[in-house]
Amino acid sequence: MFITPFTHHRPAGLHSVFDILAKYGDDAAVYAGGTELLLALKARVLRYEHLIDLKRVKELGGVRVENDFIGIGALATHYRIANDPVVLASIPEYASLSDGIANIRVRVAGTLAGNLSFAEPHSDPPALLAAMGATVQLVSADSERSVPVSEFIAGEFTTMREDNELISEVRVPVTQPNEAFRFRSFGHLERPAVNVAVGCKNDDGKTAFRIWLGAIGDHPIHAEKVETALRGVPRASLRDVLPAATEEFTSGLSATSDLHGSADYKRHLASVLMQRAVNEAAESASSKES
């Protein structure tokens, strides 16, 4: 397939990007890896007169460490994230997720910021980033703001990003010694049918879970009812409570039947994956403590 001709821009700094965006508005789109955008352009689902390549914008690169979070720059590819020593040491479950996205070619070209901006629901990063309490930094010509990943994705292909804003960085809190995360994803296609992210934190013998579901709905879903049901339950008794709690929660989820599976199948997957991830996170958090 062929892409409708466009004018290509290759700015070296953020200011030029905002100038071009201000000049062309809706007729312009930014891209880095292009792994999502080019598919849509080739299928003629989207069409732009101006494409702005961000890969040479120096302010957007790299992975940096702050005291309590890892800043993943907008140009960091999944491959870079999966192999970055700092990411591997500080947020290991996210590194592992990055290594499982799509295939090696998509990981080499595609970026996390692009993935979040595109907001394709069948995607792995949002659920785990929501469970980890990550935030998206949005910059425009004259402002900067921070939005939690859990709120950033508003729906199918829709985010809280305004047209004049860009993601500059995704900030992921460093995993603490008393907590562990587990991510489980399943699909028989390139993209996940359902995924589950679980965080488990031990505070003075009290266990608290954070549980998020991805891909089954059009944005990440917070499984608060399951978290509540598991609150204060000793690890040895999890098995008595967990199956009923996950089944009750997932049976009430709205899901659509599509190429990834029937709605019932997805709800079943969600329940099974949630149980496995909860058990693994609980075990990992307790073994870290001892």
């Binding site: 290509h8 292009g34 080019l38 598919l39 491959y79 295939n103 070619r105 080499v108 390139e190």
Partner: peptide
């Protein structure tokens, strides 16, 4: 970018040339 038949190496790493400008 699913099948890999169009794979080429860019700076030594594989990419899908069908979905790369």
């Amino acid at each position: 970018e699913v099948c890999g038949a169009c794979t080429v190496l860019a700076d030594g790493l594989p990419i899908s040339s069908c979905t790369t400008l």
